[in-house]
């Protein structure tokens, strides 16, 4: 059986920036292998749907989920207490494909930043670009600094350089072989356009309102182009990571 639901003990659940929480769950990689870019489908008591949360990190007996409080479900998640059990389906989906011998530029925007941490751990000397709306939302900078060169930007210039991740990407794209990105759709679209312009492969992690998480209910549709034909695939099963040139943004 490929899928299972597990009860993982909650170790900590702390607010690390405004409205952004860092949930750490006790876990063993042998029990629950996780690849970078996959997500955990988290059960929220009293809610009909699970919440898909990208895996931020998985090591040393800890599964780390960094999420933003956006609505009632994530609000309930943020109030879960250490010592309680968290019901996790997954990890699910297809993550980033990282090959040896290539230099990657990893780009995260806003709450799309967390999955790039585990991804950075799989890369040799990655260039890591993160972007946020403003300083109060900046997360994970110290974690990233241990793994590669980091570049930070904010929309309002309150931390790092003022501007967008694509500005930084353009300056450095000559140094890298491939881009992996996660963030809001307009950002992914812009990153994909820059990569196309410079002929660099690009993988993007997409988000869509999700149901079952395993590809049965077909709600989290994304239009992709395969062999010249546009077809519907699904973020949960075929993704969340897609080749940018295949995505019909």
């Amino acid at each position: 059986m490929k899928y299972d639901v597990r009860q993982l003990p909650l170790l900590s659940n702390e607010e690390i920036a405004h409205g952004i929480f860092d949930m750490r769950l006790a876990y063993r990689q042998d029990d629950l292998p996780v690849a970078c870019g996959q997500f955990a489908h988290v059960y929220v008591p009293s809610k009909t749907l699970r919440r898909p949360i990208s895996v931020c990190d998985a090591s040393d007996g800890e599964l780390r989920l960094v999420y933003q409080v956006k609505g009632a479900g994530t609000q309930i998640m943020s109030q879960m207490q250490p010592g309680s059990m968290v019901d996790v389906l997954g990890p699910l989906g297809h993550g980033f494909q990282i090959e040896k011998g290539r230099r990657y530029c990893l780009i995260g925007g806003g709450i799309g930043v967390p999955p790039m941490l585990l991804t950075a751990k799989q890369c040799e000397d990655p260039l890591i670009i993160t972007g946020f709306r403003s300083k109060s939302l900046v997360i994970l900078q110290e974690d990233f600094k241990a793994l590669g060169e980091t570049l930070l930007c904010t929309d309002d210039g309150s931390a790092g350089q003022k501007g967008f991740v694509t500005d930084l990407l353009r300056e450095r794209i000559g140094e890298i072989d491939e881009v992996c990105a996660c963030g809001p759709t307009p950002m992914l679209k812009a990153v994909a356009a820059v990569c196309r312009e410079y002929g660099k492969p690009c993988q993007v992690s997409l988000e869509e309102r999700m149901g079952c998480g395993v590809g049965a209910c077909l709600v989290c549709a994304v239009k992709v182009r395969k062999n010249g034909e546009e077809i519907m695939q699904h973020v949960c099963k075929n993704g969340p990571v897609f080749q940018a040139e295949e995505v019909v943004f």
Partner: peptide, 18 residues
Amino acid sequence: GNPPPRIAETPSGILNAV
């Protein structure tokens, strides 16, 4: 099928339009 979003959560339920 329809373009996404195809699902919304509701009190004790969901709406879908696949």
